[in-house]
Design a protein around this nucleic acid. Structure first.
Length: 420
RNA sequence: GUGGGUAUAGCUCAGCGGUAGAGCGCCGGACUGUGGCUCCGGAAGUCGCGGGUUCGAACCCCGUUACCCACCCCA
């Protein structure tokens, strides 16, 4: 056997229905909010993420599937969607062709990480982005969309966490304030935090080491160091969130790991899905479009991890209202007639099955049962002679003789609307 | 990249030095035209892989790979 690559997974029947549900629900939802789907390549220039996601991030430094192709280009499998969507926005001047540049994408991402619950090397995200709107109303709308998504998927036990990390004008002052507030106490923090203090002080807030918490709790908050415009923006975002009526928790400890975030950042956390509990994360990235060579346009968006959504969804989610019909036959002539009937049922839009190995009527009925067929249509010499079909209701075991000519109408009437 | 745990039938697992097992699932049978429940029968495993110890290894030892969980990081 040649096994699947580490950290990748086949999504099999039984689980794939939950994925389909995520896809169906999110597609309908995104379109209600005015988003259009965009599909971008899975491979991009390595440079796109080095400049976009950020040279200093773990994603770029150690997690990308990057290689040199036969033409000598540096290529990478995309580790996230935002830079690709920014590239597409710029490359095709989407702000010219779209009334409002709201786009979404659904697809696989790749990061070379150690797999664990909710974290895989090939994983899937659904990603939404809005370009060119700086009005805080859009921040709240995007959050409302995120909240609607988890709600419509039936995911309970979730929490929306919101923060503002400021902009290039005010964030340096905050970083300095953090280092200053730590002072001599840096040495009392865990090794990771001491490293963070030197490289990216904001990430100290990510620390989960219990002994570090008392000290971290004394540190200043990013929202107290915002410049005037960032402060006004965030206040307006909160006001709009109240208008939308979305429950959220303000957390000064929410600091995200990608370099491009500015102002509003947020995550949705789920309980009971393991340590990797962020099912959705995003924020504003006002400098990114320009950074990637486009016009000076703001942006905001989020990505949700499909694996994590599926993990957090309730058990029963994904059950379809399918009503299969099974065609059972005895004898060669009846089997030919059954195959024609099978074809007619399918042409009429019904789900129909048969048994292919010419087994006994008993095993055919068994198969019908396993397929959870609502009806078994039985054809033998008797039925052939009378031009009828025996219809057995598999739930009630009642049988009826139905003329062959009327069988499609008979079935359609009983399975229409996906209900029995 | 670091740490811990686990690898035995399609699935869930028992066996822990002496001929490879159970439950579920699968296939067939119990009125030669009828599923579910019950009963009977059957198929199915190089016991992750490679070395070693031993008369003998699924079991002990070493290595290796994969999976799971956690750290790290993130969706």
């Amino acid at each position: 056997m040649i096994p699947a690559i580490r950290g990748t997974h086949d999504i099999l029947p039984g689980e794939v229905e939950r994925w389909q549900r995520v896809e169906d629900v999110s597609r309908r939802l995104f379109e209600r909010y005015g988003y259009a789907e965009v599909r971008t390549p899975v491979i991009e220039r390595e440079e796109l993420f080095a400049k976009g996601t950020g040279e200093t991030t773990d994603i770029v430094q150690k997690e990308m599937y990057a290689f040199t192709d036969k033409g000598g280009e540096r290529i990478t499998l995309r580790p996230e969607a935002t830079p690709s969507l920014v590239r597409a926005f710029v490359e095709h001047s989407l702000e010219q062709s779209m009334p409002v540049p709201k786009i979404y994408l659904f697809g696989p991402m790749f990061r070379y990480e150690r797999p664990q619950k909710g974290r895989y090397r090939q994983f899937h995200q659904l990603d939404v982005e809005v370009f060119g709107i700086s009005d805080p109303a859009i921040d709240a709308e995007v959050l409302d969309l995120a909240w609607a998504l988890v709600t419509e998927l039936g995911i309970a036990n979730v929490e929306l966490v919101v923060n503002s990390v400021g902009c290039p004008a005010c964030r340096p002052a905050f970083s300095e304030a953090l280092v200053k507030a730590l002072g001599e106490d840096v040495g009392r923090l865990c090794a990771d935090c001491q490293r963070r203090a030197a490289t990216n002080p904001l990430r100290i807030f990510d620390c989960k080491v219990a002994q570090d918490q008392p000290l971290i709790d004394t540190l200043p908050h990013s929202t107290d160091y915002l410049c005037e415009s960032c402060k006004a923006h965030f206040a307006a975002v909160e006001r709009h969130l109240h208008v939308y009526g979305i429950p959220y928790r303000l957390s000064h400890r929410l600091v995200r790991g990608l370099d491009y975030y500015t102002r509003t950042t947020f995550e949705i956390l789920a309980g009971n899905i393991g340590a990797q509990n962020a099912i959705l994360g995003g924020g504003r990235y006002d400098g990114l479009v320009k950074q990637l060579g486009g016009p000076d346009r703001v942006g905001i968006g989020f990505a949700a991890g499909i694996e994590r959504l599926v993990l957090a969804m309730p058990e029963e989610a994904g059950a379809h209202g399918r009503v299969p019909i099974f065609v059972a036959s005895m004898g060669e002539a009846a089997r030919d007639s059954g195959i024609a009937l099978l074809r007619d049922l399918r042409r009429a839009g019904l789900e129909a099955h048969m048994e292919y190995e010419g087994r006994s009527i008993k095993s055919q009925m068994k198969r019908a049962d396993r397929l959870k067929a609502a009806y078994a249509l039985i054809i033998g010499d008797n039925e052939l002679a009378r031009g009828e079909v025996t219809v057995k209701n598999m739930r009630t075991s009642e049988q009826a003789q139905v003329p062959r000519a009327g069988i499609l109408d008979y079935c359609r009437a009983r399975v229409s609307g996906g209900q029995e």
